[in-house]
């Protein structure tokens, strides 16, 4: 039987590729019997989904947060002007 440590690793792997059937079944069996791993799996999968939705491709519109400093703004503006000329 897989250890809890193995299961956490496989939960992550499962987010990046399809696990072979025997691994999938082993994880499923383990979390059926182990509440801690069940919680871990649910939380990691959910956090992953949240992050994907929040930062999905092209969604640059993040309200608030840091802005370009005045110096950077000027520097970039100047570099563009140089090209523009």
């Amino acid at each position: 039987m897989l250890s809890c440590k193995d299961v956490t690793r496989l939960v992550s792997e499962g987010l990046d590729r399809d696990l072979p059937l025997d691994r999938r079944l082993a994880v499923r069996l383990h979390v059926l019997l182990c509440g801690a791993c069940r919680a871990y799996r649910r939380q990691v999968i959910l956090l992953n989904a949240l992050v994907c939705r929040r930062f999905s491709r092209g969604s640059a519109r993040l309200p608030g947060g840091p802005s370009l400093s005045a110096e950077a703004r000027e520097r970039i503006q100047a570099s563009l002007k140089k090209r523009d000329a």
Binding site: F55, A60, R61, L62, G65, P66, S67, L68, A72, R73, I76, Q77, L80, K81, R83, D84
Partner: peptide, 19 residues
């Protein structure tokens, strides 16, 4: 116009990159 880009999009692009 390119001279407007920094004011218009600078902050959003910066936030995207900084994150």
């Amino acid at each position: 116009a390119p001279e407007d880009w920094v004011d218009r999009y600078g902050d959003e692009l910066f936030r995207y990159a900084y994150l």
